[in-house]
Write a protein that binds this DNA or RNA. Structure first.
Lengths: 350, 350
DNA sequence: GGACGTGGGACACAGATGAGCAACAAGAAC
DNA sequence: GTTCTTGTTGCTCATCTGTGTCCCACGTCC
């Protein structure tokens, strides 16, 4: 209900003191010496008038806006961006900061992304979060360096900016581990064709896990396709099409939930029931898919919320001088990808 | 590359003129009479120094921040919020405005939502967009009234705020129309159980369309369940479980894509192929589901992007005094829900 | 001596902050 | 016991942040 036309000056008049005193009282300035009575007079006057500070004027004087810029790729395309935003929003709100959001495209020119950052800079945000849609090596506009910045879900080419990324290796190990734990010995991997860290690291983790379990990781079947439902379908058809049924995998690790969805259909067409005849595990934990497939898809969750929150926490720390980001920039921070158990894994048929 | 410590004052010194003149030149003030030479001196000095205006100071002076507040429900839960944000972001960017986003929950207390709005007000946003997760009647915090505001995807209880909502009736008619057009005469409706406008209006449109086509709309089978995949599954099982096969619907209109996904599974279990034995049409156009089901689901798209853009356009118009929002507040603006044709509709078997 | 063309000074926006001033008390010097 | 010193308390003044804008000053030409 705070009336927007009430200023510190009005409070001062109402309380019969100077604006300086009001400012001191309201900001709990440590070195200010003010009697308890005066303090009360000011506070009650402020309350009565419904005074609220004008953050603009404050910011102008203090050179702190209490605003964080968030440039996010493809806000609408994936729910992932939403979770990063949510994590950032809650972390920011908890520390009294606000969020200015700008949408950008991963495929946008460096120049246009520079302009996006510039727009935030013009508004004097205290720091910037740069969130990408998926984990990759990204080229960042140079003006990002003007204020403390943190990169979310990617690593910078040239990498001298603090970044937080998901633990691809650990996630993939958890997924494959769940399959091995259930007793599977013939496990296939349906991989993505894009040249991104996840593609390489998940494959590597897949092979390593099998090998560590005493299986022949290098010989395990791997099929790559575009990381969409139809790609998953095609890859699954190929991987399950072995003439020799005894040779066919009894479990599939899929690059993501969308590909797993394709694998579900391939299995259905081949008369394979999940998880009876075939166990499946995905990656991403896209609620809309994973929770709604039948049976529910066991998958690995990407820590988008956590990355958003982590990045915001540390960005604010840096803004407030509590942390030195350049120190953290040496290596990206890696956040865990927990396994989300549903009903798509069972023991292989004996 | 604009250096953050360059002010109008520095430009003035560099150009050998007063700050007033710089301000006049850079803002193209109409009544200012300044010689072309001076103009050029100022402009090149500004460019050379990499001058960029401090929007904070501008805002303080002009009482205009060029910022719009967007409070959005459940940013992360549905992709819908993302599309609204995207529409708003692009519309805002096109007119030189920025977006401050705050996430809130539909179930949050009125007080906490008031605090969210207050946070935006403190930062002196020029206007506020209040976006809900789904179309309903919502109770708004009173302080929303302090600045121009537009409600997106809902109507206010008491309704004296400009709002933009989807055309439930038209969308439902398009969906049912597509079924009728394909030749279906036995059409069922799988409805939601929530008491929201969409539930009522889609049902009404469903019956009306059938009746207008000379069928018995009141007798058409309708089953209601929670608007989730399993609800759709249950409802579809019931609706397709008629003993008399000649009585069974040959087409299903589903409240949303998630329920349609359930209907797909029910059909599969009953040995009904889509669209050969059963045509299905959904609502929402949730890409992740609709485009990825097999066959692709024909559905009705909700105009989230458009609503976000429309609301932003008109909000800015109001902020700039080009529109009187109170006039538009009389009736909510209704935006069309276009049919998205995929492959889940075919003519009924003869 | 106006009219016109050019440009600058001063103040406002809302609040933050270091320096400084008046009032009073305690202690010290005479 | 008075006066001076020193210190403390309580509060205010002036100035600053970067821009926009009203109003006025100066010079020149008719």
């Amino acid at each position: 209900m705070s009336n927007k036309n009430i200023g510190i000056k009005d409070v001062a008049v109402a309380a019969g003191v100077s604006v300086t005193t009001v400012s001191h009282v309201l900001n709990d300035v440590s070195y200010a010496r003010i009697s308890p009575e005066t303090r009360n007079k000011v506070k009650s006057a402020a309350e009565q008038l419904g005074y609220g500070p004008n953050r603009l004027a404050q910011a102008l004087r203090t050179q702190r806006t209490g605003m964080l810029g968030l440039v996010s790729e493809e806000i609408a395309t994936t729910p992932h961006a939403g979770r990063i935003i949510l994590g950032a929003d809650e972390a920011a709100k908890a520390r009294g900061y606000g969020l200015m959001i700008i949408n950008t495209s991963g495929s946008a020119s460096l120049e246009s992304r520079r302009a996006d950052v510039e727009a935030l800079l013009e508004r004097r945000v205290d720091g910037i979060l740069y969130a990408t849609m998926y984990h990759r090596n990204v080229e960042l506009p140079a003006n990002l360096g003007s204020v403390p910045s943190v990169l979310v879900d990617s690593v910078a080419r040239g990498g001298n900016i603090t970044a937080v990324i998901p633990d691809e290796d650990g996630g993939a190990r958890a997924a494959v581990g769940a399959l091995l734990e259930a007793g599977h010995t013939r496990v296939g991997f349906i991989n993505n064709t894009d040249d991104v860290p996840a593609t390489r690291q998940r494959l590597q983790a897949f092979r390593a896990m099998l090998t560590e379990a005493g299986l022949d990781g290098d010989a395990a079947p791997v099929e790559s396709e575009v990381s969409e439902v139809h790609g998953g379908y095609e890859a699954a058809r190929r991987i399950l099409a072995r003439e020799d049924r005894a040779d066919m995998p009894t479990a599939l690790f899929c690059y993501n939930d969308r590909m797993a969805m394709g694998a579900y259909r391939a299995a259905a067409e081949l008369g394979l029931s999940i998880p009876g005849d075939l166990s499946v595990v995905g990656f991403d934990d896209q609620e809309l898919i994973a929770a709604n497939l039948h049976p529910g898809l066991t998958t690995v969750a990407l820590p988008h919320y956590e990355m958003g929150a982590w990045a915001t926490e540390h960005l604010i720390d840096a803004v407030e001088g509590k942390t030195d980001l350049t120190l953290m920039a040496l290596h990206p921070t890696i956040l865990g990808c927990p396994l989300v158990r549903r009903d798509s894994i069972a023991a292989p048929r004996p």
